[in-house]
Design a binder for these strands. Structure first.
Lengths: 153, 153
DNA sequence: GCGATATACTTGCATATGCTCCTAATTAGG
DNA sequence: CCTAATTAGGAGCATATGCAAGTATATCGC
């Protein structure tokens, strides 16, 4: 590459993944709307059903989300009684988050819609490409950027 | 698949792309921070440099972003004098957004950091996989979900 | 030309995102 | 034990995200 060449900013991986996230989120949210859940909320409830009970920190790590972000995202769910948050049994600092009955019911309603969204996505994008994409995205989310981080302090 | 089988929610494409977006954004933002730009702002300025001048609606479409979201995202940039917004010459309703000199300078500073981030990403994720990923993400962003939309009104 | 329709944008609302700084509880060293 | 470093979580700040509803301008039909 010539020294003077302007780098091609259209090749930005960050922009690509953010644009796709916006586009796909709007699609899924459209389906989930009747259930009264957003994709983020749906993901949280789904994760809780699998995990049973988790602290905010571990749940945040599972969802590749900042702790403080998750803490706030839990608020609307708790307000609606879809989750319950109690003190951690071993560590008094931590808080255990668990799915309530109402939350499980809401999740079931959401799942019916999610199946449509997921199916719709795969129909238009193709099963093969969908699988490839999800595999690559999972790999990205699992990457440890620590070694290449800007801040080495 | 058995009728009673619970669908595997961990295969959600929406969750996958959102998690990846969060993870990658944090990585790029770390690098961009010294330039005083966030990835979203960097993308907007970069787009404006290429486009020269665009209305909010077309710019939003280019960035796969809601018009109202973009409208608000422009505010901090205008406040800092990195962009200028004037009335559209042909259509009086529209507003033309363009890069200022200060914006171009800021963008140049950001590009230096972006190169590090982009390079770091490709180093840890691999050039081949990075290319495949970006291609798939571009395809996703270009998909017209209209036909498979939940709302057919 | 005028009323109907469409388009460009803004505002209000609610959630999403993560950083920095703070407090409380835990754990490590001595 | 008791202090120091660590960890779990919250609060404040700023931006990001998009829907619904509203206003202003353009364009279409006649």
């Amino acid at each position: 590459m010539p020294v003077d060449a302007r780098p091609d900013l259209t090749l930005c991986h960050c922009l690509a993944v953010r644009q796709a996230a916006r586009h796909v989120t709007r699609f899924y949210d459209q389906f989930l709307a009747p259930s009264g859940l957003r994709t983020t909320q749906f993901s949280i409830l789904a994760k809780l059903r699998r995990a049973g009970s988790e602290t905010i920190t571990t749940l945040a790590r599972d969802l590749v989300m900042d702790r403080t972000t998750l803490g706030r995202n839990l608020r609307p769910l708790e307000r609606e009684g879809l989750i319950a948050i109690g003190k951690g049994s071993v560590d008094q600092r931590s808080r255990e988050v668990r799915l309530t009955e109402a939350g499980a019911a809401r999740l079931r309603a959401g799942i019916a819609r999610w199946i449509e969204a997921q199916g719709g996505f795969e129909t238009v994008f193709g099963n093969r490409r969908s699988s490839s994409l999800r595999a690559l995205l999972s790999a990205v989310s699992a990457v440890d950027f620590g070694a290449a981080s800007a801040d080495m302090s």
